[in-house]
Amino acid sequence: MRADEQQFHEFVAARSRALGRTAYLLTGDHHLAEDLLQTALLQVARHWERIDGHPEAYARRVLYTQNVSWWRRKRFAERSLESYDDRPVAAADPTPDPLAHMLPVSRYLWCQLSASESRCGVCRAVGRAAIARSM
């Protein structure tokens, strides 16, 4: 066994539990954490000769980037529905807004006011903005 391989095996024996905990914190699932750790250790083993300094920091970075990659793949994966018609339909609200019928009337009144008829130009602008936001 080469010296590099021996160092890598010692690293795995010494730090795999800590890296496993980090993987669990990233994934929130024991099985996914084990898969993530194995994938990360495989990548660390491939690049072991090039790692200078702190191999654990490199391994943690690999854990993070691999988890982000998995998350992105899962996020954009297609999800099939059983059927379009099987989705639940939201029930109509039995208590409608009692002032909903007033919105068109108030909008009409605000639009008909001139600057001299309103108390100030600011009031008219604020009223129009409020009506526009509520639509």
Rank of each mutant, 00 (worst) to 15 (best):
Q7G: 05
Q7T: 10
E10F: 02
A14R: 15
R15Y: 10
R17C: 04
R17V: 12
A18P: 01
A18L: 10
A18C: 03
G20C: 05
G20H: 06
R21Y: 04
T22M: 13
L26Y: 02
L26I: 03
T27L: 02
G28F: 02
H31M: 00
L32W: 00
A33T: 01
E34D: 13
E34R: 13
E34Q: 14
E34W: 00
E34T: 09
D35P: 00
D35V: 00
L37T: 07
T39N: 13
T39K: 13
T39W: 02
T39E: 15
A40P: 04
A40R: 05
A40F: 04
L41I: 02
V44Q: 10
V44W: 09
V44F: 07
R46I: 01
R46Y: 06
H47Q: 12
W48G: 05
R50T: 08
I51Q: 05
I51E: 05
P55D: 04
P55N: 09
E56N: 06
E56M: 12
E56W: 04
A57Q: 10
A57T: 12
Y58W: 12
Y58T: 12
Y58C: 11
R61N: 12
R61S: 10
V62C: 05
V62G: 01
L63K: 04
T65E: 02
Q66D: 00
Q66S: 12
Q66F: 00
V68H: 00
S69T: 12
W70R: 10
W70Q: 05
W71F: 14
W71T: 15
R72Y: 05
K74Y: 08
K74H: 12
F76L: 09
A77C: 10
A77T: 11
L81I: 13
Y84K: 09
Y84F: 08
D85I: 05
D85S: 14
D86S: 15
D86V: 14
R87L: 15
V89I: 10
A90M: 12
A90Y: 01
A90L: 15
A90F: 06
A92C: 05
T95I: 08
P96Y: 03
P96E: 08
D97E: 11
D97C: 14
P98A: 12
L99F: 12
A100P: 01
A100K: 05
H101L: 07
M102V: 08
M102K: 11
V105G: 01
V105N: 01
R107S: 13
R107Q: 13
R107A: 14
Y108G: 08
L109F: 07
C111T: 13
C111S: 14
Q112K: 09
L113H: 04
L113T: 03
L113A: 07
S114E: 11
A115Y: 04
A115K: 04
S116G: 07
S116H: 10
E117W: 02
E117G: 07
S118R: 02
R119G: 00
C120E: 10
C120L: 02
C120Y: 06
G121V: 06
G121Q: 11
V122E: 15
A125N: 07
A125L: 09
A129V: 06
A129I: 05
I131D: 06
I131N: 07
I131H: 09
A132L: 13
A132G: 08
R133L: 07
R133G: 00
R133T: 02
S134A: 12
